Simulated assay, not measured.
Amino acid sequence: MTQANPSNRLSSSRLGLSRWAGPPLILVTDEGRLPDPLAAAAALPPGSGVLLRHYGDPARVARAAALAALCRRRRLTLIVAADWRLAARLGAAGLHLPEGLARHGVLAPALGWLRRRRVLLTIAAHSPGALGRAAELGADAALVSPIFPSRSHPGAPVVGPVRLGLWKRLARQPLIALGGVTAATAGRLPRGTVAGLAAIDGLVPAERSRS
């Protein structure tokens, strides 16, 4: 996420974000484009979220512990991807499931932990079918991507604002936009379509107080 030139252009009221139980602005970690996410996370306004991916990082556990401590200090919502045991160890506020993992089922212990702790569940969705699976699993939100052309998936087909609006009508859970989301492109999203914005970089921090 861009840390320079903070702006309030991404405030909830200005973009017409719908509501969900989690943060409206989420930093998504990536070991290639954001090897050390701590500095970017420290620049987020309180009330934002951090989605820890770093799937191939051999130091993932240690990095996750440092990130969890920072999130507590900064009042950020930590969501851990794919590993419910790590999420439980860190006392994370949520678990994120990649679409493939959600498609092939989730281990009963993971669902049991989610229900006992009443933590957030987000699921990646790249199709209407994936949105249906997210609803079946009781997801609190679906991360839909890529909304716009993204450096993470160059040349990949994008959802786009129009199709996103159609998917919103089908979805039974709030949607979070991911992929090519910047201060400029976020303004192209139809008002009320998404409940949050997520990005690895290029997203200007929102204003420090929620609307």
Rank of each mutant, 00 (worst) to 15 (best):
residue 106 V to M: 00
residue 146 P to G: 05
residue 96 H to V: 04
residue 145 S to D: 07
residue 150 S to G: 08
residue 106 V to I: 14
residue 127 S to W: 08
residue 127 S to Q: 11
residue 118 R to K: 15
residue 159 V to E: 06
residue 92 A to Y: 05
residue 147 I to Q: 07
residue 158 V to C: 15
residue 124 A to H: 09
residue 191 R to A: 15
residue 120 L to M: 12
residue 108 A to S: 12
residue 177 A to K: 03
residue 114 L to N: 01
residue 131 L to P: 07
residue 100 G to E: 14
residue 94 G to A: 02
residue 122 T to I: 11
residue 153 H to R: 07
residue 181 V to M: 12
residue 173 Q to H: 09
residue 186 A to L: 11
residue 90 L to D: 00
residue 168 K to M: 11
residue 91 G to N: 08
residue 122 T to K: 11
residue 179 G to L: 00
residue 89 R to P: 00
residue 121 L to M: 09
residue 172 R to D: 12
residue 112 G to D: 13
residue 165 G to P: 08
residue 94 G to R: 02
residue 115 R to F: 09
residue 188 R to T: 11
residue 181 V to L: 09
residue 154 P to R: 04
residue 155 G to M: 09
residue 107 L to D: 15
residue 154 P to C: 04
residue 113 W to L: 10
residue 143 L to M: 12
residue 108 A to H: 11
residue 181 V to F: 13
residue 133 R to V: 15
residue 121 L to T: 10
residue 157 P to E: 06
residue 90 L to A: 05
residue 105 G to F: 04
residue 181 V to Q: 12
residue 190 P to Q: 10
residue 116 R to I: 02
residue 169 R to N: 05
residue 90 L to Q: 09
residue 99 E to V: 07
residue 119 V to W: 12
residue 158 V to K: 06
residue 105 G to W: 01
residue 120 L to T: 06
residue 154 P to Y: 08
residue 162 V to Q: 15
residue 153 H to K: 03
residue 168 K to V: 00
residue 130 A to K: 06
residue 126 H to A: 13
residue 140 D to G: 07
residue 134 A to Q: 07
residue 159 V to Q: 09
residue 164 L to Y: 00
residue 160 G to V: 07
residue 156 A to W: 03
residue 184 A to P: 00
residue 167 W to R: 11
residue 163 R to A: 14
residue 118 R to E: 15
residue 155 G to R: 07
residue 143 L to Q: 03
residue 178 L to P: 08
residue 89 R to K: 13
residue 145 S to N: 04
residue 96 H to R: 02
residue 119 V to Q: 05
residue 185 T to Q: 03
residue 174 P to N: 08
residue 149 P to I: 07
residue 147 I to H: 11
residue 145 S to M: 12
residue 153 H to N: 07
residue 96 H to F: 13
residue 99 E to C: 04
residue 141 A to C: 03
residue 178 L to G: 07
residue 149 P to H: 13
residue 95 L to I: 14
residue 161 P to V: 11
residue 151 R to P: 10
residue 124 A to G: 14
residue 130 A to W: 10
residue 100 G to N: 05
residue 165 G to Y: 01
residue 183 A to Y: 02
residue 141 A to L: 02
residue 143 L to E: 04
residue 166 L to G: 10
residue 164 L to W: 02
residue 100 G to L: 11
residue 138 G to T: 01
residue 183 A to C: 12
residue 148 F to I: 09
residue 146 P to A: 00
residue 180 G to I: 06
residue 135 A to W: 12
residue 186 A to C: 11
residue 187 G to F: 02
residue 142 A to W: 02
residue 91 G to Y: 10
residue 166 L to K: 13
residue 105 G to N: 08
residue 166 L to S: 10
residue 191 R to S: 12
residue 154 P to D: 08
residue 164 L to N: 06
residue 90 L to C: 09
residue 161 P to N: 02
residue 150 S to T: 15
residue 170 L to C: 04
residue 112 G to V: 02
residue 183 A to H: 13
residue 172 R to P: 03
residue 152 S to F: 01
residue 170 L to Q: 15
residue 131 L to Q: 04
residue 188 R to S: 14
residue 155 G to V: 04
residue 116 R to K: 14
residue 148 F to W: 14
residue 119 V to M: 03
residue 92 A to Q: 02
residue 180 G to Q: 10
residue 118 R to D: 12
residue 159 V to A: 11
residue 186 A to W: 11
residue 176 I to Y: 00
residue 179 G to V: 08
residue 175 L to D: 08
residue 155 G to L: 06
residue 157 P to A: 07
residue 135 A to V: 03
residue 126 H to Q: 13
